[in-house]
Structure formats: structure tokens, C-alpha cells
Computed example of a mutant assay.
Amino acid sequence: MTTLNDSIDKMLTGRIVIFIDGESTGLCIDLRHYPGRTPQEPDVEKVVRGSKDGFTENIIENSGLIRRRIRDPRFRCEILQIGVRSKTDVCICFLKDVANPGLIKTIRKELKAIDVDGIPMADNAVEEFILRQGWNPFPLVRYTGRPDVAAVHLLEGHIVLISDTSPSVMILPTTLFHHVQHAEEYRQVTASGALLRWFRFMAILASIFLVPLWLLIVTDHLLPDFLNFIGPNDKDYHIPLILQILIAEVGIETLRLAAIHTPTALSTHSVSLQLF
């Protein structure tokens, strides 16, 4: 370290700085140990077979979990600091001889151009700054909490961004097909893995076209006689059928949000005990 401001930044991250009389530079020793949890399997990416570890909120542990799977000297981890006040560490991970150098340069440039007080929302804030997605509803990056998934994408030439305090990493660039992949497929034989992926594709297509197709068949009386029990039997309903479907969609989305944000039975029991 050659400047006092650099030394202050290092000390604020928990490192030890040693100054020697008569020397113009100092020594920085990294003995940081932040309080946190141990690596455990992510709740949304569980597998029957495979590793049970996952990313944590510690950027050093997360990069180490990937390094454990890719022991290649060409695997690079570049750490940048983002935020004038927060100085959040963001790590760019890539394989030097596999990833696109132009893309790496562009991402590095976009990260250095971020000028904000801080990014407390970590990777989500970084995504908004570097991609400028706007009103596009489709995801442009993929998030994962599994080190093995991140390692597979690195070997394919993708770039992984690790943000400190975030238990997930960002994979880019991605396409629609990357979002329908699952770690369980890689633990199966080729035929079984391909079959699982095709089932997932069919489920996606069914979720998109099944309701409109059902509405078209019911309203245009295209059902055969032996399937007349499908759909509304009373044609004198006061609420339009399309409005009923929209209400049902809102109800399902509300139930999904409630299932995500409702505390577990143990935490609910603890809250009730605290109230008494």
C-alpha cells in the first residue's frame, strides 16, 4: 500500500495494516473472519444426488467453493470495490483462456463506472447498473446458490459475479435455455437428464398455452359432447370468463407470495411465545 486512504480502506474491511518506520509503504495482512453461517444446500436448488454445500454471504468463502472445483491456474478472480460509502467487494470470476476477453473488459468497465453511495442490495443492484434492463420483463442473467452450477458455467465460458453479503452469484451471459437447467439433470444418465429437461419444457409450454386454449375451446363450443362437463355449465354467468381467469391468477399469485413470506411453524411458535 502506498497511500493513507488505501490503508484506511483496508482497515475498514477488517484487515491488519503494519507500518514500518522509515518505509514509504505498509504491509497488509488479511486475517478477516466475518460472522456468518456455514455453507448449506440452497432451499430453491435442492438435489437428490450431489453436493449439499452452497454459497454464503462471505465473498472469500464463495470464491473458495468455486476454486475447490476448478483447480486451474487460469481461473481468475478479480475483486473490485463498488460504492463510495459502502465499498462493497464484487468479484469477477472467469477462465482466462475460455471466456470472451471483450465481454470481460466490458463488464469490468461497467462495474468501475458505477458511482453510487452503496449497493446494499448487492448483486441485484449490480445487475441493474451493468445491464440497464429497463422494462424488459425477461431475465438477462441467471442466479444460483450452488458452487457446482457456477463451476459448470465457468467451464462453458460464462462469467460469474460474486457480490459480498449475497448468498447467490450472478451468471452472465445467459439465454432462455440456461434458466430451465437444473443441477439434478447433471446427476443423471444422459437419457434421464434429457427426459427431465423435456418435461420441464412441456410444463413451461403448458403454463403458457393451456389456459388460453381452454378458454378458446369453451367459449367457441369446440368441445365434443362427452367432454361437456369441462368448463362452465351455466352460460348465464354475470362475470366474464376471462375476468374469472384473471381473478384466479391474482389469487394464485397472492398464495405464492404468502407461502414465500409466511414464517415457518417454529418461528411462528416463537413469536407467539414472545407475545405472551
Rank of each mutant, 00 (worst) to 15 (best):
M1F: 06
T3E: 15
T3S: 15
L4R: 09
D6F: 02
L12I: 04
F19K: 07
F19M: 07
S24R: 13
S24T: 13
T25H: 04
L27V: 14
D30I: 06
D30P: 08
R32A: 06
P35T: 05
P42F: 07
V44Y: 08
E45L: 08
K46Q: 15
K46D: 03
V47A: 06
R49S: 09
G50F: 08
S51V: 03
E61T: 14
S63C: 09
G64K: 15
L65D: 01
L65F: 00
I66E: 02
I66S: 00
R67L: 04
R67K: 15
R68F: 05
R68L: 10
D72G: 06
D72H: 12
P73K: 07
R74T: 03
F75V: 01
R76Y: 02
E78I: 02
I79T: 15
I82E: 01
G83M: 02
V84K: 15
K87L: 15
C91V: 03
A99Y: 01
N100W: 00
N100D: 15
G102R: 11
K105M: 13
E110M: 03
L111V: 04
L111C: 08
K112L: 14
K112S: 06
D115T: 04
D115G: 05
I119Q: 02
M121Q: 11
M121K: 10
M121G: 11
A122N: 10
N124Q: 13
V126I: 10
F129T: 00
I130W: 00
R132H: 15
R132M: 06
Q133I: 13
W135V: 10
P137C: 11
F138H: 09
F138K: 14
F138Y: 15
L140E: 08
V141H: 00
Y143W: 12
T144G: 07
R146S: 07
P147R: 04
D148M: 02
D148Y: 00
A151N: 05
E156I: 00
G157K: 06
G157A: 06
G157I: 05
I159M: 01
S163C: 15
S166I: 02
S168N: 14
S168Q: 13
S168K: 14
I171L: 06
P173W: 05
H179R: 09
V180A: 09
T190W: 09
T190M: 11
S192R: 08
G193R: 04
L195E: 13
R197M: 14
F199Q: 15
I204K: 09
L205W: 09
S207Y: 02
F209S: 12
L210S: 15
P212S: 01
P212N: 05
L215P: 00
V218F: 01
V218E: 06
T219Q: 14
H221V: 03
F226Q: 13
N228D: 14
I230R: 02
P232V: 01
N233M: 11
K235P: 00
K235I: 07
I239A: 06
L241N: 02
L243E: 14
L243A: 12
L246W: 11
I247G: 03
E249R: 10
E249G: 09
V250F: 11
T254W: 04
R256T: 05
L257Q: 10
A258H: 08
I260E: 09
H261D: 05
T262A: 05
T264L: 08
T264Y: 09
A265M: 03
L266Q: 10
S267H: 12
T268D: 07
H269M: 08
S270A: 12
V271L: 14
Q274I: 11
L275F: 12
F276L: 12
